[in-house]
Design a protein around this nucleic acid. Structure first.
Length: 454
RNA sequence: GGUCCCUUCGUCUAUCGGUUAGGACGCGAGAUUUUCAAUCUUGAAAGACGGGUUCGACUCCCGUAGGGACCGCCA
């Protein structure tokens, strides 16, 4: 069977870590199986869905390198949903309800107050044709519910326990007998996610649905919908959700966790991809330079069922580690775009000190641009300037120079190197001076050691 | 109120009845860099709690506690 998976965000916001974990798990699985990855925009909520968010989501996906073979949007498939709904109505699985949202809300509260589960009581099922007509005359428009199998109400009881073998969680069961019949069609005639998702999964022959564990009960309902629609259901896999570093639900301050913000903070897409693909799995969370590496690692068996903590400090550290191991060839074009020169020699000198790639630009300016030196010990740096060897310089220059300086001043260790670093770079810390010195060059080095900006 | 899921070093996790409970990140130490960072080596660090079952439980069962999810005319 051909593998086809879909990532189905609703364009009501930008992508965040949780979303992206679902996206990348789907993408990785598709690639591992030589299958198809589809982007489906679930925009049935017209109130909140916007084209700007849809484009933002595409942008986020592209930035991560998660390409999709086809794209669909649910708002364009209404005719198809109408046809499917007709079939359900004919089969008696879809029934008209006339309660207002207010009435339903009160009903739920009453049930809860009495210690009962807030389940729809199916009173609409008992309405006579005359009653329905009267309600319609009042101006009420019906919304439609899908009648779940329920042995209590059915003359020919269907089993209420729905089960499947979850790709990640193993054998799962959901008792739909304890669930409300889901509303599939709003009073205004528009369709709800539970329904459109199933119709689409069937129509596009989705073979595997990989999503968050917040959907496990939905799966019970949707499995019944597949059956009612006469469609073969896909396999399901539900991963755990991410929680915050403090150990509580993540959903709160999602803005700070958007992919957009990671990009703005200068994080590497592969750091974000590595982190989201590996967190909550038994593989070590290590930086990988290519999505292919993550594809090779992918396995449902490695995905844990316990919620994992997302820690942005860990993401940042992973980003730094990724940069530290990246060879020059991988970053050369991007360095050029940042206006960074110096070739591989420069990159190898500074990469161990980078938190983001932009930092390379900072070091390039220190090496090639103007730096206001900090004078901690004018006498020492003046002696140092006088002892600077003649050019040409190479990677032995530093050792020769330092040996001479040490002999002349008797200084060593921090007392010797700290003033030199401050004068040469204007900073407390940074890459090895031995590698930096030839990059700075004699003229600049001398002026900086003498205390003038250069 | 109901249903489902989870709980091993600080963090992500391995173990699928018998292990010195392993790895990775982080942390400590050492080496190297005659400074800082990077790098290498090395060390400390864990089975939530209480009951069972068993010759033997991290592993199986029950309970407790804690955490997560769902119960929408959101997705």
């Amino acid at each position: 069977m051909a593998v086809t998976v879909r990532f189905a965000p609703s364009p009501t916001g930008r992508l965040h870590v949780g979303n992206v974990r679902t996206a990348i798990l789907n993408w990785l699985f598709a690639k591992a199986e030589g299958g198809t990855f589809m982007l489906r925009l679930d925009d049935t909520d017209a109130e909140r869905s916007t084209e700007a968010f849809a484009e933002g989501i595409r942008e986020d996906l592209r930035w991560l390198g998660l390409n999709w073979a086809l794209e669909e949007r649910q708002s364009a498939r209404v005719a198809r949903y109408e046809a499917a709904a007709e079939g359900l109505k004919r089969a008696g699985r879809l029934y008209a309800c006339y309660e207002t949202e207010d009435e339903l809300d009160r009903k739920r509260k009453r049930q809860l107050a009495r210690g009962l589960p807030p389940i729809y009581d199916r009173s609409a099922l008992k309405l006579s044709d005359e009653e329905r007509a009267a309600l319609e005359r009042e101006g009420r428009r019906p919304h439609w519910r899908f009648r779940l199998a329920n042995s209590e109400e059915d003359l020919n009881p269907l089993p209420t326990i729905v089960s499947w073998n979850d790709l990640i969680r193993g054998d799962q069961t959901v008792d739909v007998g304890s669930l409300s019949d889901p509303v599939l069609i709003r009073a205004d005639g528009t369709f709800l996610y539970t329904f459109t998702s199933v119709v689409d999964d069937a129509d596009f022959a989705i073979s595997h649905v990989i999503r968050g564990e917040d959907h496990v009960t939905n799966t019970g309902v949707q499995l019944q919908l597949f059956e009612a629609l006469g469609a073969d259901p896909p396999a399901f896999g539900h991963h755990s959700l991410l929680i915050g570093a403090e150990g509580h639900a993540l959903s709160k301050r999602l803005g700070a966790l958007s992919i957009e913000s990671f990009r703005a903070a200068g994080l590497e897409p592969m750091a974000v991809a590595s982190y989201t693909a590996l967190i909550g799995t038994s593989d070590p969370i290590e930086p990988h330079a290519h999505l292919d590496d993550l594809v090779r690692l992918f396995s449902f068996a490695k995905i844990s069922t316990a919620p994992a903590r997302f820690d942005s400090d860990e993401l940042k550290a992973l980003n730094a580690r990724l940069l530290h191991k990246l060879p020059y060839a991988e970053v050369a074009p991007r360095l050029k775009a940042l206006g960074v020169g110096g070739g591989a020699e420069f990159w190898d000198a500074v990469r161990g000190n980078l938190a983001t790639l932009e930092d390379a630009g900072r070091w390039w300016r220190i090496v090639s641009g103007d730096v206001a030196p900090l004078s901690e010990d004018r006498e020492l740096t003046a002696r140092a300037a006088a002892l600077l060897p003649a050019e040409p310089w190479d990677d032995t220059t530093w050792d020769t120079w330092v040996a001479a300086l040490k002999a002349a001043t008797g200084r060593k260790g921090r007392a010797l190197f700290h003033p030199l670093r401050l004068a040469l770079t204007g900073l407390e810390d940074g890459p090895e001076l031995k590698a930096l010195l030839p990059l700075i060059g004699r003229a600049k080095a001398e002026r900086r050691l003498r205390g003038s900006a250069s």
